[in-house]
């Protein structure tokens, strides 16, 4: 067993932090650089690229489109997954095998394969849906739901949802009341963690949007690709875009971690008091 001293631990932590931060710092510097030649830092700085990015209506639209799509995918997955996992845990454990198999598919098949599969299927059965936001919504919900499924399933197991359900039922609660007043508040940490992954999956997804909608639903990923391929090469603009995407996802992650920090009960009210009592 190697024991790092206090300084050693800090040095190790600093190295890892630096390793992770350098690419992001470089992108940030690039977004502010007026000119960057052979020096380690830019030769001159400017806010012009940020101004240009925010003035660019195409970029604003792509950003907005991507955001509302990610939110819609998240809501659809919550509506589909939470009741299904609840039902599976309290009423019909037999559907677990089917649910777990479905939840494994997006992990074992590349998104591009899934995209072509959907393209083929929809091309035959409902070609009018191709290129619409609806097909993006449904396909994103399909590939992202496993993240929510596993997180919610784990949270329900940890909360002992079966017993909570029985206690609620003998108190006279209907299934909907049970879900709303008892189950959801007790799985909030899993819901938040899984929800964040669903949001991020849709937010940064490229293959399905490219294949199923193309320019008819230009999201941030497609817009970024276009910037890269553009012969006038607006790489600084892309740096701005990358930072914006990072800020959105990082902000959500920080919010989830902050709300969930060091608590046995996740988001449960009073858990902070518990931690305080234990520390005393």
């Amino acid at each position: 067993m190697v024991h790092l001293g206090r300084i050693g631990r800090w040095a190790f932590f600093a190295f890892i932090a630096l390793y992770l931060a350098i690419p992001m710092v470089a992108v940030i510097l690039y977004s502010f650089s007026a000119r960057w030649t052979s020096n380690i830092l830019p030769d001159a700085y400017t806010l012009a690229h940020w101004g240009e990015a925010f003035r660019d209506e195409r970029m604003r639209n792509a950003f907005w489109r991507t955001t509302w799509m990610a939110i819609a995918v998240l809501l659809l997955d919550i509506v589909l997954v939470v009741p299904a996992v609840y039902w599976q845990r309290v009423r019909n454990p037999k559907i677990r095998v089917f649910a777990e198999l479905s939840a494994a598919i997006p992990f074992v098949l590349p998104f591009i394969v899934i995209a072509f599969g959907i393209l083929k299927f929809m091309g035959r059965s409902a070609p009018q849906m191709l290129g619409t936001p609806l097909i993006i919504l449904l396909s994103h919900a399909a590939i992202a739901f496993p993240f929510l499924y596993w997180a919610v399933d784990g949270a329900m197991a940890a909360a002992n949802v079966g017993r909570l359900n029985e206690a609620a039922v003998v108190c006279g609660a209907s299934p909907l009341q049970t879900l709303r007043h008892v189950i959801l508040p007790n799985i909030s940490s899993g819901l938040a963690a899984g929800g964040m992954l669903v949001f991020a999956t849709s937010f940064g997804e490229f293959a399905l949007v490219q294949i199923l909608a193309g320019s008819r639903f230009e999201n941030i990923s497609l817009y970024s690709l276009d910037l890269l391929l553009n012969t006038t090469s607006q790489v600084e603009l892309m740096a701005v875009l990358t930072i914006l995407m990072f800020v959105v996802l990082f902000g959500i992650s920080v919010a989830v971690v902050y709300l969930n920090r060091g608590r046995e009960g996740g988001f449960l009210p009073g858990s902070r008091a518990l931690v305080t009592e234990k520390n005393e």
């Binding site: 002992n160 017993r163 909570l164 206690a167 008892v182 508040p185 007790n186 009960g265 449960l268 009210p269």
Partner: peptide, 8 residues
């Protein structure tokens, strides 16, 4: 047996 008060 295990109380099952609602933690929230």
């Amino acid at each position: 047996q295990s109380y099952v008060l609602f933690p929230n």
